[in-house]
Amino acid sequence: MQTFNDITALQQTLAAWRREGLRIALVPTMGNLHEGHLRLVDAARQHADRVVATVFVNPLQFGPDEDLDRYPRTLPEDQRQLGERGCDLLFAPSVETLYPEGQSALTRVSVPQISEGLCGAHRPGHFDGVATVVSLLFNLTRPDVACFGEKDFQQLAVIRKLVRDQHMSIDIVGVPIARDHDGLALSSRNHYLDSEARTQASRLYQCLVDSAQRLEQGEPDEQVLAQGTQRLEAAGFRPEYLALCDAITLRPISTWQPGAVLLVAAWLGNTRLIDNLSFRS
């Protein structure tokens, strides 16, 4: 696997691959990789001849009181895992490389409406930061396909709308959530949890499963969501939302049916966890 932090070297290599007629897949990450990220590489390999991963802790998507400074940077280990998984190229730029004129002078990208509720309501500006850096990475790499995890469901929906609205010729592939043995969705932030909190954390997924079962049995959505929120609070969480939405628009719906998704975000101590369960699951 080749590793670049220079844009010119990156684009020269990608241009050579395109001249060979090779199909290129992109896997954007913030590093501190786990099995969920590596499954994105596996999926990318199924859709392309060459796989490009990026590791970039994007300051634009962190709020002023969030964990930018303590977010784990594990580039050597990330390189090892990506290489072993068959990634062909890693682009790991500095903030100065991607934002040479500084963050305040940077042209921003915003995807309205779909980015405004759920996590967007609790993390103002977050999805503008995501859309901005993803647009930039798409422009730099010009991939044929890009793979994103379904755990960050709203992020995936925002990126799909961005690609549609901008008429980008990129296939966006959503990759199913990778889960631990007890159902907890794998996340780079799980390492913030101590042993007691890690045991508690599995109840987030169980809340989704139980709520989906009750909705399938025909219980009113308002009752199911309210009681699910109460159960999370009783389990020691501080819920931000438990919502039943349309999987494409993310607008609230009232029926557990094809195209529905249950989404949850909650704090456990100082760690913010998100998860979701789609009807097809």
Rank of each mutant, 00 (worst) to 15 (best):
P100M: 13
C207T: 09
N139P: 02
H126M: 02
V224F: 06
A131T: 10
R203V: 08
S195L: 13
V209K: 09
L208N: 03
D152V: 02
N190K: 10
A157D: 08
E216P: 06
L162A: 09
R189L: 07
Q206C: 13
P220M: 03
L156C: 03
R189H: 06
L137W: 13
V163Y: 04
E196G: 00
P100L: 13
Q206Y: 11
G102E: 10
S104R: 09
S135Y: 04
E196T: 09
V133S: 12
I114Y: 11
A105V: 01
P176W: 09
P112I: 04
V163C: 13
R214Y: 09
V175L: 02
L193T: 13
R108A: 06
D182L: 14
G174I: 01
D171E: 04
E116I: 08
Y205E: 09
V158F: 00
Q155M: 02
L193F: 03
D210P: 08
S115C: 06
T107S: 05
A121Y: 01
A201H: 03
S211M: 10
R123G: 00
V111Y: 11
E150T: 01
R123D: 07
R142D: 09
G183Y: 00
V163T: 03
E116D: 12
R164Y: 07
L186F: 15
M168T: 01
A121N: 09
R164S: 14
C119Q: 05
V130L: 05
G218F: 12
D180L: 14
L106P: 05
G102Y: 07
R179S: 05
A157H: 00
V134G: 06
S110V: 15
D180H: 07
S195C: 08
A185C: 12
Q103F: 09
A201P: 01
G129V: 02
D128R: 03
D152K: 01
G183N: 12
L193I: 10
Y205R: 05
R198M: 06
H122S: 00
M168S: 10
V173N: 02
L136R: 13
S104Q: 15
P100A: 12
C119S: 04
R189M: 08
R203W: 01
N190V: 02
G218A: 03
K151N: 13
V173Y: 02
V173E: 08
D152M: 03
A105T: 01
R123A: 00
T132H: 05
P100W: 05
V130W: 01
S110F: 15
A131R: 12
Q155I: 00
E222F: 06
A178W: 07
D152W: 02
L136H: 08
R123W: 00
L162V: 04
C207I: 09
L225I: 05
L106V: 02
E150P: 15
Q200F: 01
D144I: 15
S188M: 10
T199N: 12
H191F: 08
E219W: 13
E116V: 00
S115W: 02
E101G: 11
D128V: 07
V175S: 12
T141I: 11
S135L: 08
C147R: 10
L225R: 15
D194G: 03
P176Y: 02
